[in-house]
């Protein structure tokens, strides 16, 4: 039983557009970046609830989150300008296991968010060589975000990323639910990073329950990375 991580106010350093997404870079303060695939609850200014976001990159002294401004909360976060601040709670949940033999990163759309940090962490374990990655997007505009992931092969709909996955590799995947279901069917033993609406991120609200082993369990506690 570990106490929940610290909540800290961090300051926006930069707000960069990458295709339709926003890369929000903040100061790191005393925040522990944690393990790739873990997540943070980001204050959404003017909203009641924070929003769960995985860490995309860990520039020196900074945290960077890749965010798709699809609703009022994410739009409020993406509207933050350098010098403005927000509360960050984390790292939360269980991230990817990095002790795999032949990693392959699989990402779809905004689900690529944790993969740059994951790639860096895996590269550090492998003499600096980043693992291969396959990424799928719905348009060339969205695919601009692929530049964040080294050593990546990219496809655009109607081609699906599952067509690019060779057999026999240790898959670490994050993307929309239909993609994760397809990866699960194709690659048993994969590590899949799921998402669910959540109010708290630390086990209090029971809002993020998903079916795990036939039971409804809290994704924030059991996940968000689950074995396929």
């Amino acid at each position: 039983m570990t106490p929940p991580p610290r909540r800290e106010r961090v300051t926006v350093v930069a707000n960069e557009q990458i295709g339709p997404y926003t890369l929000l870079r903040t100061t790191r303060g005393e925040v522990d970046p944690g393990v790739p695939g873990q997540f943070f609850m980001l204050e959404a200014p003017g909203r009641i609830l924070p929003r769960p976001m995985s860490l995309c990159l860990v520039p020196t002294g900074e945290l960077a989150f890749l965010i798709d401004p699809i609703g009022p909360g994410t739009q409020a976060i993406c509207a933050l300008q350098p010098g403005e601040s927000l509360q960050v709670l984390g790292p939360l949940g269980n991230g990817f296991r990095l002790d795999v033999e032949q990693p392959l990163l699989v990402g779809g759309g905004i689900g690529i968010a944790p993969l740059p940090f994951t790639s860096q962490a895996l590269a550090r374990r492998n003499g600096g060589t980043p693992p291969p990655a396959v990424l799928g997007f719905r348009s060339a505009h969205h695919a601009e975000a692929a530049a964040l992931v080294p050593n990546a092969e990219v496809c655009i709909e109607p081609t699906y990323v599952t067509a690019l996955i060779p057999a026999g590799l240790d898959v670490l995947a994050c993307g929309p639910e239909p993609m994760l279901e397809a990866v699960r069917a194709q690659c048993p033993g994969s590590q899949l990073a799921w998402e669910a609406p959540m109010a708290c991120g630390y086990g209090a609200c029971y809002g993020c329950a998903v079916e795990i082993d036939g039971e409804l369990k809290r994704l924030c506690i059991e996940g968000p990375v689950l074995a396929a």
Partner: peptide, 23 residues
């Protein structure tokens, strides 16, 4: 009680809705 199926929470302009269902 397993509780209600997801989606269980929704943010509203000045609050939130929950439908956990006494899990």
């Amino acid at each position: 009680r397993g509780g209600n199926p997801p989606t269980r929470i929704a943010e509203t302009p000045v609050g939130m809705l929950n439908s956990i269902g006494l899990a």
